[in-house]
Design a protein around this nucleic acid. Structure first.
Lengths: 225, 225
DNA sequence: CGCTAGATTGATAAAGGTCAATCATTGTGG
DNA sequence: CCACAATGATTGACCTTTATCAATCTAGCG
């Protein structure tokens, strides 16, 4: 079933806000596409004919910088929407970090459906507002002075994302992607993780797993700003 | 006439996208309010009953940090919308930096109008998408290593905002607000400005004015990333 | 006209960037 | 199935940059 445009109604678990009818409608104009790990879903600057909704997997939205570097703007998970356009062109590139399945929706069909179903349109508006809040939260993270505090906030964001606050956090993205998301060098992320580990706050049993050891100190780091 | 939800159709001048009819409709459910310099328009955490559209003036949206500091999330100018809510509460505070006039719209009346006028709703959706892009652009600024490059990008943002690329830029906000927007200390902003001045790139004839002297070097600083 | 918040400038120290080397992991081909 | 290559991750040494602390200066504003 189409999980489009689900969003968080607070700091709680994601909320399904589309009616069954709307999901069927959306399903009727969308097609499912699978992407392998590392595949570009679309490229910045190319014609924006489709909106994508992530059904399964994790993807990153990023921009290539003139200097050859790369800035990761956001990570997208199941239920997230991407395909933001400006003047009919995508403004950033999107790449699958894990095997991913997306719903692919022609932008014309979607806006057409908006005209008929104002409620559906409102859900997308709400979804967009949520993404804006996330981007602003990320701005706050980026101004944190200490690298290990940034990493802690990042881990906390991932933890909150799945509602259930399990101490075990899956990291689908590479250290490099984290660094480019947090505005740090690869080395700084490594050192920050090492420090959190050394201080007994977070353990990293594997490169794609984090385990919160000292919840209160972790929260303290992640919340204080 | 109501300038609600105007947005940029590219990197060009703001575009008026509401029809005369929509402007009248919006006007019928909105009231104008004036705020003096320094007045809080609304407070984070308070019930979000109204959406505001800036008609005149400059305001800042910010969050107070647990540490007593303050993070400026964005500056809002004529035509910008604020009043973003989560669970019926404002997520950030908004304060007038100059004498300001806003349209104040009851959120209920606005969503009601959305149901009747899908086109109007789409304009707000587009506006929201634009704000999201701006927030992402800001994320890129915040990851710039050198302080003077951040300041240059900030000035460029202000310059582009009014469409006409005049070398003279009005700075409605204080150095402190700029610092808190750029994630720098007050001193770093001062020094960055001094450096731009010293190197003949930008002059600061007054504390609220910047004058681009060397356009090409300025662009180079502001664009390179 | 002086007062006060904002802005600038200087000295110091902490933090992360950068460069370089090592270690680990994943994926490939023999 | 294993060896090897290539990419990613970590650690160390050094250096640039900015935060911080402190003093001074400036500009609004009563």
């Amino acid at each position: 079933m189409l999980q489009a445009a689900s969003f968080r109604g607070g700091d709680k678990a994601p909320v399904q806000i589309l009616t069954a009818k709307q999901q069927i409608e959306l399903g009727s104009i969308s097609t499912e596409i699978a992407f392998n790990r590392g595949v570009r879903i679309y490229e910045a600057g190319s014609p924006a004919d489709f909106v994508f909704i992530v059904k399964e997997g994790v993807v990153k939205a990023f921009q290539d910088l003139p200097t050859g570097g790369e800035r990761v703007l956001t990570f997208l998970f199941a239920g997230d929407v991407c395909g933001l356009a400006q003047d009919g062109r995508y403004v950033n590139s999107v790449k699958a970090l894990t095997p991913t399945i997306c719903f692919k929706i022609p932008i014309g069909a979607l806006t057409g459906m908006f005209l008929r179903d104002s409620e559906l349109e409102l859900q997308f508006l709400i979804k967009m507002a949520h993404e804006l809040r996330e981007a602003q939260r990320q701005q706050i993270i980026l101004t944190r002075q200490q690298a290990h505090a940034r990493v802690a906030m990042f881990l906390r964001m991932l933890q909150l994302r799945d509602g259930k606050e399990s101490p075990r956090i899956e990291l689908a993205m590479s250290r490099r992607d984290i660094a480019r998301y947090l505005g740090l060098s690869d080395e700084a992320v490594s050192r920050a993780a090492a420090r959190l580990n050394r201080e007994g706050v977070v353990a990293f049993p594997g490169r794609h797993v984090a385990q919160i050891l000292d919840r209160s100190r972790f929260e303290q780091l992640a919340l204080a700003a």
